[in-house]
Design a protein around this nucleic acid. Structure first.
Lengths: 266, 266
DNA sequence: AACCGACGGTTCAAATAATGAACCGCACAC
DNA sequence: GTGTGCGGTTCATTATTTGAACCGTCGGTT
């Protein structure tokens, strides 16, 4: 791995739970020598990607990322487009919809909408990190990523978020062909107890999978009718989003021809 | 300069005007060898900081910055706080207010508000880049930055944005003591023709200047009364913002005691 | 007050990664 | 068909990164 990747990888240790990290902690988390971590953090700080807090001397994310994000949104208004689609999707299904994008080997939530149709809804956090093996979105991404990436993602120990999290790499691999055939993944209670999630992949202009859209409903509310509704809405709207973002479905993606075609005779 | 800084500096060439940049262009802009630029861009792409567009194979900012910006805002809600202050400031003055933060040796606009009080207003762009020598905000920052930084910022050739841009480093240096004494800077037509700008610095927890708040009005509308109003509002509200952000005014910052104190006798 | 451990930060020889001139294949223009 | 510029690659040379050991400092414990 190059020096630049190492430096940037330090940024991935920041999260909502760890908004600021000390030098020694960062060295431990990243497995780097303290001197190395210090030099990399100093360079990141020079460029405004991190800054040091007043009290203590911990590091936290810096202001430079704000400008880049504003430019990114200006260039590729992914979030805006996702919000449109998610709003429709949660309205149509009556449940929470969210989109996450691949960032290294985890997914980051970038947008979500609630339906306000019921007293209870699945709640989301800003910038939440979703693991690939424990979520519907992650499975959808894995199913449509290249084998090398899957190997890499499943090579590390897989943490169990709940009692229902599948942590056996072989079992996860076994799910992928079915997901590829159907075009979407499901997960019941793998990330949060009592959450039933359906997720479909989103692709970029090179037909690479860049993330997923998911609909998350309480397990207690799941019925055959709701499941059918979610699956139909999710697939049509997520393929639409891929197109909106300038992306293309891969040739292997299943197509869902309308039942009735105009070719009556033939 | 370290490798990491070089890689991150590539990101600064993206702007609204140049949302995507090809490999050869990037090599030219940065002065790097094409092979070097390619390797650095590849590493940035691995980490999701840039990505390649479908048509052509140019590079543009990637999705990773979105997550970091969301976390930064979650950690230090600078933009939210700035928006509150800017809204009040433009309402009180009837003019456009904006805040920019130091990023390397330029300022990046992070938030702005309009007053809608007149038919004409000074317009701002998202993520606009302001040079230090040509803007009121830049002068305010220079005046309250350490001498080494000022030397560095003024060492390079200073571009003239308009006929009124001051490009003589000595002349700019001569302005700084006055700005330090008053607590704010002014610029007339230096960045955009017909724009009269007042700007005051914002400080972090170590009393380092991290950016500036400015009020920008058309030159044609500037009167003594408006100028007095802008100066008073700008100073009180900007010092307030520094405190809101957890920062401290440096001990050298001029204080503006209320004219009437309670110590009548003494 | 003396001690201890952990912190952020620094040093410098050894090890490793970055560098860039030349090169490739390709697409497009003339 | 030929020339130009593109994105991308190669590999010997070179400069940077690396990390064990080291500082001084801070806060808690004895």
């Amino acid at each position: 791995m190059g020096t630049t990747s190492k430096a940037l990888s330090l940024l991935s240790f920041f999260s909502r739970a760890r908004a600021s990290i000390g030098l020694s902690d960062m060295a431990r988390l990243s497995g780097m020598n303290k001197a190395t971590a210090h030099r990399l953090l100093s360079e990141l700080a020079d460029q405004g990607f991190v800054e040091q807090t007043g009290t203590g001397r911990e590091y936290r994310l810096g202001p430079a990322v704000l400008r880049l994000a504003a430019l990114r949104e200006n260039t590729v208004p992914m979030r805006d487009m996702a919000m449109q689609v998610l709003t429709d999707l949660s309205a149509a299904t009556g449940e929470t919809a969210h989109m996450s994008v691949l960032s290294g080997d985890v997914l980051s939530s970038i947008a979500y909408t609630y339906a306000h149709a019921h007293g209870t809804m699945v709640m989301m956090e800003d910038a939440e990190v979703l693991t690939l093996h424990a979520t519907g979105s992650g499975l959808a991404v894995l199913a449509f990523s290249d084998p090398g990436f899957v190997d890499q993602a499943l090579a590390r120990p897989l943490a169990a978020r709940t009692r229902h999290t599948e942590t056996d790499p072989a079992a996860i691999r076994a799910l992928l062909p079915g997901i590829r055939a159907r075009g979407f993944a499901t997960s019941v209670g793998g990330f949060e107890e009592d959450v039933h999630s359906h997720a479909a992949p989103v692709f970029d202009a090179q037909s690479r999978c860049i993330g997923a859209v998911a609909v998350a409903a309480p397990v207690s509310r799941m019925t055959n009718a709701l499941r059918d509704s979610i699956q139909a809405e999710l697939l049509t709207r997520t393929t639409h989003l891929t197109r909106l973002l300038g992306g293309f479905l891969p040739s292997t993606f299943p197509t869902f021809e309308p039942q009735v075609t105009l070719q009556k005779g033939a």
